[in-house]
Nucleic acid binder design. Sequence first.
DNA 1: TTAAAAATCACCCAAATGGGTAGTTCCTTT
DNA 2: AAAGGAACTACCCATTTGGGTGATTTTTAA
Lengths: 213, 213
Amino acid sequence: MINPTNLTSIKICIVEDDTLILKSLQQVLNKADGFSVIGAFVSAEIALEKLKTYEPDVLLLDIDLPGISGIEAIPKLKRIQPELNIVILTVHEESELVFSALRKGAVGYLVKGSNSKYLLQGIREVFEGGSPMSPSIARQVIKSFTPNTETNLSERELEVLQKLSNGTNNKQIAEDLFVSTNTIKAHIKNIYRKLHVNSRAEAVSKAMKKGWI
Amino acid sequence: MINPTNLTSIKICIVEDDTLILKSLQQVLNKADGFSVIGAFVSAEIALEKLKTYEPDVLLLDIDLPGISGIEAIPKLKRIQPELNIVILTVHEESELVFSALRKGAVGYLVKGSNSKYLLQGIREVFEGGSPMSPSIARQVIKSFTPNTETNLSERELEVLQKLSNGTNNKQIAEDLFVSTNTIKAHIKNIYRKLHVNSRAEAVSKAMKKGWI
DNA sequence: TTAAAAATCACCCAAATGGGTAGTTCCTTT
DNA sequence: AAAGGAACTACCCATTTGGGTGATTTTTAA
């Protein structure tokens, strides 16, 4: 079932608890030219134990695994093989799962069940330094870059908020904007009211999370 | 040179100042099945003026344009046609350009000169709700999600920093961590020293930018 | 094993912050 | 024409913060 390593092939390991899917993936990949499944594991625990003896180029990782989940497994796998290219292969398209996988260091995110041509192309892309994502995932990722422009803060308030994030104190902000410190205090109070916070640090944190500054 | 609008085709506008490239793109796209170039402009100014009469599905946008640059043009174009799908088509792969384009609202980023098959596939992908990116761009984008784990801050200091970002004051942090406020003050002083800052707001801002919290 | 870093605690003091109240002017939207 | 928001200013006061100095204990790394 497991192909002998081929020097010209991309060496792949798969972690997938559904043995039907696992076998089907192995079949598809081994049949294709230039791909070689050198390891197949049904849990993250087994993968973590065996990984160092395989040293694959690419590891396909399911998210729903018994015991250690795919997401949790990412950093553990990377500790064993730091440069490992991990591609998530799952049915889940929820933002939170996608982003937590990417934050942990996955380099690709493919949705299961898309046709095998895409899978092969994706793996080749990873091997060549790319980051394959299913279209809707890619759109989510791209969308996360556009700052939320919906804010009830005024221009001036955003300007002050920006200065707060630089650690500038009221007196200095007042000088920079050519107004009195009392005015700055007023602006800050209004910012606090609008953001429902009561300190500079929290205001800055909230505004940064929203992408306003 | 410009194809009559075909109901089943993806309607495309191109903004590109190099007329050779522009013509070649038109040729490639019009020759392909399912694509129709309905507008071709050599500057952002012209595109902005004419856009509303065309209403394309996808707009291919060069970055290096005389006058208004491609990056600057994005928000202006979107004000005219808010749901417009803008795909950057350029030779530049520098992070800063990529990310500023994405922040402004581009939904795809393709590198010029890759073969026309990729271009056609990319445009189709955009039309179907995806976000095509050239492989190296995709990798850059994905990489931007992995927080910089290189920090000289201790575990405890990160814990305190996290609380600072919630607007928690020293007294409350001390209670939360079951230590004295003096200890918290000491931690905060150490955080300031390590981050070269001297206020909570600036510490939070710096740590968030680095992805530590 | 020896030094460095982390984590803990204490005291002092000037400066900054946060919260409250109150008022004017200008501009936009109804 | 009226109402409300934005931008500006002022004063008061309790609390918090930031900076300085100094110390002990534990953990980690050289």
